[in-house]
């Protein structure tokens, strides 16, 4: 326990803690919308697509900064979504197959580029391979400031356009009928997802960052039937996962932050699926048992009545 307290007192640790918590918060919020739009796996595709973008950004500039990586990853994500759109429109392939193709080819390219960088003469390439599984400890003050800005922008947009995002997630046809620029708003949501993914890559890694988009949102759905509450809960679950992940990985040596964060989110999912009111497994089973008992009691009463009647006859 004293160990944890001394860690929290460490200013460097505070930065990392803040960064991971903000990351979980923003991923949870934007993840809710992508989950409801059945676009959960799009986050995974965007994350994998980000790797070559980040590598190319580094190769061109030789600088490691989240801001630059954001641009590279954003462009790569854009190309990936266009690729998926092109494949689904012009072939008979469905979206899942198209995503699989794009995801794996971008990731393959990313690994190749990463190897090229490792063997190149950049001088400061050390640590770039950490993007695969993430290393929160490598975060510095300026990264956290970038993350905070990203988080604030993302939360403000989701708050201001909550009405639009909600309608588009539920009934895009009706939204179009009202005159909302649905395609532009969908692109904006995609962009926010790219931003959340890229901000998260450093801490959680390319492979696992999608989990922060999906798991908190799915968990939150088990606790409420109200979208606004679900989005807030999802943000809280995400933030809590980030916080737990940082504390745990810092206190136990050599535990990577990303995987621990994801496991923390998964634990919350497990609790949600079991104990969520109404939708949870336990609640459902209890409900069924209660119904069964009520039915049994009713039948007993009617049998009892019948025998009485027969006796009277």
């Amino acid at each position: 326990m004293a160990n944890i307290w001394s860690m929290i007192a460490d200013p460097n640790m505070q930065w990392i803690f803040l960064g991971c918590t903000l990351l979980g918060l923003s991923s949870g919020v934007i993840g809710s919308f992508s989950y409801l739009r059945k676009q959960s796996l799009m986050g995974d595709t965007l994350a994998h697509a980000a790797l070559p973008g980040i590598c190319i950004a580094f190769m061109l500039t030789g600088i490691k900064s989240i801001g630059l990586f954001l641009i590279g990853a954003g462009l790569a994500g854009l190309i990936a979504t266009f690729g998926i759109g092109y494949i689904t429109r012009h072939t008979k392939l469905k979206q899942d197959a198209a995503m699989g193709i794009v995801l794996s080819s971008f990731f393959g390219l990313g690994i190749v580029l990463l190897t090229v960088i490792q063997h190149g003469n950049y001088g400061n390439q050390a640590g770039l391979d950490k993007f695969l599984f993430g290393q929160a400890a490598s975060m510095i003050g300026s990264d956290v400031i970038t993350m905070s800005i990203v988080c604030i922008v993302l939360l403000s947009i989701c708050t201001l356009l909550f009405k639009q995002f909600k309608l588009i997630s539920f009934d895009p046809g009706f939204a179009r009928g009202l005159g909302y620029p649905v395609a532009a708003l969908e692109q904006l949501m995609m962009l926010l997802m790219v931003v959340a993914v890229v901000a998260g890559i450093q801490a959680v890694g390319v492979v696992l960052v999608a989990a922060l988009l999906i798991t908190p949102a799915v968990s939150a759905r088990y606790w409420t039937n109200k979208l606004s509450l679900m989005v807030i809960l999802s943000g809280i679950f995400g933030a809590a996962s980030g916080a737990v992940g940082t504390l745990f990985s810092a206190s136990v040596s050599n535990l990577p932050t990303g995987p621990v964060t994801v496991l923390a989110a998964t634990l919350m999912f497990g609790i949600s699926i079991l104990f969520g009111p109404q939708r949870g497994i336990v609640a459902k089973r209890l409900m069924r048992q209660r119904a069964k008992r009520r039915f049994a009691v009713q039948r007993e009463i009617s049998i009892h009545d019948n025998t009485k009647k027969e006796a009277a006859l």
């Binding site: 409801l36 059945k38 009405k163 639009q164 909600k166 309608l167 997630s169 539920f170 009934d171 046809g173 009706f174 009928g177 009202l178 005159g179 759905r221 409420t224 039937n225 109200k226 979208l227 679900m230």
Partner: peptide, 29 residues
């Protein structure tokens, strides 16, 4: 000036919202 009732199957009814909230969407315009 235009109101629209899409086919019922066009949306996912497991969306986290209640009846009143869906009707309020008609006021968004």
């Amino acid at each position: 000036l235009i109101g629209y009732v899409p086919q019922r199957e066009s949306v996912d009814w497991d969306f986290p919202t209640n009846a009143l909230d869906v009707v309020m969407m008609g006021r968004y315009g």
